[in-house]
Simulated assay, not measured.
Amino acid sequence: MGGSAVLAAALLGAALAAASTDAPPEAAAHTVSEVLFCQPEAPSLGLALTFDADQLFWFDFLSRWTPQLPDLPPWPPGLETPPQLLQDATFCQHLRRALTELVTGLIPEARGVPVATVFPQAPAVLGQPNTLVCLVENIFPPAVTVGWRLRGVPVTRGVTHTHYTPTADLAFVRFSYLAVTPAAGDVYSCVVTREGDNSSVVAYWVPAVPQDNGPAEELETALCGAAMALGVLLGLLGVAMMVLARRGERG
């Protein structure tokens, strides 16, 4: 196992265990996690603060915490200052290198196969602006590249990505967004490439084309009308036969 995988898993498990708190039986338990990872691949460093499965802040290892949502309050400047976090990152890198020397060739390297899902942010309507969401799960280590294609041609305009969010199963998730105006015949694909071995996972999305049921509905209406007319005609014919039968009995 590579040093990056060993360290990321250990830190993630420790963060989740330390963040769990005992809650009253009538209250739901929540988990606040602060996960630091380091690895040879890009990004070489990552630090995320999450509440349950939602990311709240991401540290850029320059000078600031970046909120995931714009309406979140800023990170308190006196809480975990950048020099303290950089010191933790340096320790992480030293530990990763030491673990790599100890375990390389002795145990297999842990790697997850990413799972991608593409869906529209709002109900899709042809010709109406929308946003496609590519949810990438089971990422480990957190080193993947997410790209978009339209009919096989790479698309870079209108693309945004989120940072990696750690999960309770010792993996990571990541979102990618693409602004689109779907049209008939479009085929969108989200391509997830795992760094290091150049393996890719592709998820597709095709807008549904509304069916023109005009002629079919007219034919259905005509058939219903003909059936009703035939029913009335058969009813009248039955009444006439009954009247004729009674007259034959009398005369």
Rank of each mutant, 00 (worst) to 15 (best):
A53T: 11
A53N: 13
A53E: 15
A53I: 02
A53F: 03
A53L: 11
A53W: 06
D54Y: 04
Q55D: 01
L56W: 07
F57T: 00
F57R: 00
W58Q: 02
W58E: 01
W58S: 11
W58F: 07
D60E: 07
D60F: 02
F61P: 01
F61D: 05
F61R: 03
L62Q: 12
L62P: 01
S63D: 15
R64N: 07
R64T: 12
W65M: 08
P67V: 04
P67G: 03
P67H: 05
Q68Y: 08
Q68T: 14
Q68R: 12
P70S: 09
P70D: 10
P70L: 04
P70Y: 04
P70Q: 01
D71V: 15
D71G: 02
L72P: 05
L72E: 03
L72G: 07
P73L: 11
P74W: 01
P74E: 03
P74R: 05
W75S: 03
W75M: 06
W75N: 01
W75E: 06
P76Y: 01
P76F: 01
P76M: 03
P76T: 05
P77A: 14
G78H: 09
G78R: 05
G78A: 15
L79I: 08
L79Q: 03
E80R: 08
T81D: 08
P82E: 04
P82V: 03
P83G: 03
L85A: 06
L86W: 04
L86M: 14
Q87G: 14
Q87N: 13
Q87V: 03
Q87F: 09
D88R: 14
D88M: 13
A89I: 06
A89M: 11
A89Q: 06
T90P: 00
T90M: 05
T90A: 10
F91D: 14
C92R: 04
C92P: 05
Q93N: 06
H94M: 14
H94T: 15
H94K: 11
L95Q: 14
L95A: 10
R96W: 06
R96E: 12
R96V: 13
R96Y: 04
R97C: 04
A98N: 11
A98C: 10
L99P: 02
L99V: 13
L99K: 05
T100L: 06
T100Q: 15
T100E: 15
E101P: 00
E101I: 04
E101V: 04
L102W: 09
L102V: 12
V103E: 13
T104S: 15
G105W: 04
G105H: 06
G105Q: 09
L106D: 07
L106R: 10
L106Q: 11
L106M: 06
L106W: 11
I107L: 15
P108T: 05
P108N: 05
P108C: 06
P108F: 00
E109T: 01
